[in-house]
């Protein structure tokens, strides 16, 4: 998977790929950010956990309302004070909030999904 595509997004600080079990599989970090592999390892696990929870919520929502518009989920993001973590199904990017475009990040994640 070409993580460099994610690092090219405006404001991108780090990008990483993760397994279905939440293990950190690969990562790239921009110099001077102070982001460590441990940080990315924990983020990878939270991405997988949150995708699973969101998948359950989307499935339940669609069953309850009859509104079929969320599944399959393509990603999620957590918006912090200075950074946002934007995750697809098997990769994620950490972006500085000042420059973030959630739509551009989700689109880039879709493009490289599955190792493309």
């Amino acid at each position: 998977m070409n993580l460099a595509v994610l690092l090219d997004l405006p404001g991108a600080l780090a990008a990483f790929r993760f397994s279905e079990g939440g293990e950190l599989a690969a990562h790239v970090v921009r110099d001077g950010t102070g982001i460590t592999p441990l940080t990315l390892e924990l983020l990878a696990r939270s991405c997988v956990a949150n995708l699973a929870i969101a998948g359950m919520e989307a499935r339940g929502w669609e069953a309850l309302t009859g509104q079929a518009a969320f599944q399959p989920l393509t990603g999620l993001s957590v918006i912090g004070l200075e950074w946002s973590v934007i995750a697809g199904r098997d990769a994620a990017v950490v972006v500085r909030n000042r420059d973030v475009s959630y739509e551009a990040a989700f689109a880039a994640l879709r493009r490289i999904e599955g190792g493309a």
Partner: peptide, 14 residues
């Protein structure tokens, strides 16, 4: 980290 405190979240569906 720049994530704390969390401001919010996004779920991207189909």
């Amino acid at each position: 980290t720049g994530l704390r405190p969390v401001q919010g979240w996004v779920v991207r569906g189909a």
